[in-house]
Amino acid sequence: MLSEKATNISPAATIEISARIAELRRQGINIISLNIGEPDYPTPENISQAAKSAIDAHFTKYQPVPGILELREAICKKFKTDNGLTYRPNEICVSAGAKQAVFNAVFVLCGEGDEVIIPTPCWVSYSEIVKLVGATPVYVPCAPEENFDLNLTGIRSAISSRTKAILINTPNNPTGAVYSEQTLRALGELAVEHGFTIISDEIYEKMVYDGAEHISTASLSPEIYRHCITINGFSKAYAMPGWRIGYSAAPLEVTTAIKAVQGHVTSAANSIAQKAALEALSGPQDTVAVMCGEYARRRSRVAQLLQEIPGVRFSMPSGAFYFWVDVSAYLGKSHGGKKINTAVDLANFLLEQAHAAVVPGEAFHMPGSIRISYANSMKNIELALTAIKEALALL
């Protein structure tokens, strides 16, 4: 009954974990979520007020597929100011979240038999988006001893005549790595040499720490610019995950194709959310700094608490709001007659024993590790990690 593509797609592990958490909570169990990939802050009031004003003004009609002109102009201004990039409004397409922007990009570039290189560990949806369009994901592992910087040697070896794109995410989910200018320039030169496109997901760009600098790959040279699609959105920096507003920027030919695809799938993004996004870019930016400052404080505390747990290993993240933690020392151990063979088993053990939710590395195509989010209150972080330490001591 189902199509081959539908049966070839794996459900998002993060969604499955959320469903299990909901079930435990219905049983009256208090679960602390360290699995969440969204800010724990409310949307800033000025942004919410802009949406209310849009409703009051009856701004509820269909809008142009690529987004309202004022928002696309604001995005162009943001690219120029923040990233040193020059785009025109007709090279921007606003979408229903950055995930749709990634899908649009992969869809217009790839088809049956094409290949897309994906550095791992990677965000859970990248591989499934590639498979949905009929292309093949080609995984290139990044090394923890290199702080999960791009494995340029591996990428070079993975390039073939069928390579159409590479999907990168900087700052990175799940590792927190922030790719350097040197690394990105080398990747850009490979793209120019071999004729593939870099799809650069930069949704966490505002969340960088300890002097790390976010670099937009497309800004590195005119030649590299022509081989890039830049993806961004509002869910992380402006605490707007449920508003579902993202965008892509690319040379006109690519954006024209993206607009054509989106026009037949979702059409324009939500009109009210677009007005909120416009206020996010053009209004005060102080809440972004406040949130990022608090993430930095939590990051330091998580590192302290993880250092107190025997056997775990981690690199200090330079961006986003995640820790990627090697828990392989605990695999093969048992508790209550149950053997813990995988990070999935361990995540389930921590959910049941510590009442703390994390995401297993299998979801990100790198077993043996877990992802811990610090997009939660300091109190909850401390309670959860203390419980995790006590639970692991039982193994």
Results as ranks from 00 to 15, higher is better:
113 G>Q: 01
314 F>H: 05
8 N>W: 02
262 Q>P: 02
7 T>L: 15
114 D>S: 15
90 N>A: 04
58 H>G: 08
79 F>V: 06
252 L>R: 09
280 A>G: 08
252 L>C: 08
241 P>M: 01
193 E>I: 00
153 T>R: 14
89 P>I: 06
238 Y>L: 03
365 H>F: 11
373 S>Y: 12
394 L>I: 03
216 S>A: 15
320 A>C: 07
94 V>N: 00
279 E>N: 06
100 Q>A: 02
7 T>K: 15
174 P>I: 04
20 R>C: 04
15 I>P: 00
123 W>F: 12
134 G>N: 00
138 V>I: 10
251 P>D: 07
268 A>G: 08
131 K>F: 01
320 A>R: 11
33 S>E: 12
68 I>K: 09
87 Y>R: 07
263 G>S: 08
271 S>N: 11
132 L>S: 14
28 G>W: 03
38 E>A: 13
71 L>Q: 06
358 V>S: 08
368 G>Y: 09
208 V>L: 00
245 I>L: 13
8 N>Q: 12
47 I>S: 00
361 G>R: 14
243 W>C: 10
236 K>R: 10
131 K>M: 00
283 G>K: 02
57 A>N: 13
325 V>N: 10
276 A>I: 01
80 K>F: 07
245 I>D: 07
330 Y>G: 04
144 P>K: 00
323 F>S: 04
324 W>N: 01
280 A>D: 04
218 A>Y: 14
375 A>S: 15
377 S>L: 00
26 R>G: 14
133 V>L: 08
216 S>T: 14
261 V>E: 10
120 T>W: 03
105 A>T: 08
349 F>H: 00
69 L>W: 02
227 H>Q: 12
112 E>K: 15
135 A>R: 04
159 I>D: 00
239 A>D: 04
8 N>H: 13
238 Y>D: 05
214 H>S: 13
329 A>K: 11
324 W>Q: 03
